[in-house]
Simulated scan of single mutants.
Amino acid sequence: MRRLILAAAVIAPMLGHAAWAEDTVKIGYIDPLSGGGASVGEGGLKTFQYLADELNAKGGILGRKVEIVPFDNKTNPQEALVQAQKAIDAGVRYITQGNGSSVGLALED
């Protein structure tokens, strides 16, 4: 997961002008945060939040604060798509997901 955050730190500044206009780099974390997979999703969320805190303590990404924005997909591909749209509507331009290949495939499409 550390590599993903570090990759976001390198790639984020290169992607689109909208990211430059914002003071915060928002990364949407779409994973199960309720139901049977919640313990795995919550553990991943804590890891991402920890890494964002480390990045922010070192000045963020090119001076921009990193914010992890959680979204609960309930390990359901259709719900993941709903949550991805909510992330976009909330101004999130980067998303990550880690649990459930069916969810990952839905988001990839």
Rank of each mutant, 00 (worst) to 15 (best):
M1K: 03
L62D: 15
I95K: 01
G59L: 04
G100N: 09
G104Y: 01
G36R: 14
A12K: 04
G37A: 08
A38I: 07
S101T: 13
G35W: 00
K86Q: 13
G41F: 07
Q49G: 01
G37S: 09
A80R: 07
A19D: 11
G104S: 09
L55M: 13
R93I: 07
I11K: 10
R2T: 07
E54L: 12
A106P: 06
D31G: 11
G91E: 11
I68T: 03
V40N: 11
Y50V: 03
G91A: 11
A19E: 08
E42T: 12
D31W: 02
K74P: 12
F71E: 10
L33V: 12
Y50C: 04
L55Y: 03
A106G: 04
K86V: 13
R2A: 05
A87E: 11
Q49H: 02
T96H: 01
S102D: 12
S39T: 13
R3G: 05
R64P: 01
T75A: 15
E79P: 08
H17I: 14
A87T: 06
K46G: 14
S39N: 12
G37H: 06
I61Y: 02
A52E: 00
T24V: 15
G63K: 03
L4S: 06
V66L: 00
K26V: 12
V10E: 12
P13V: 02
L81I: 09
I30Y: 02
G16D: 07
A87F: 12
L4E: 13
S101Q: 10
K65R: 13
P32I: 00
K58Y: 05
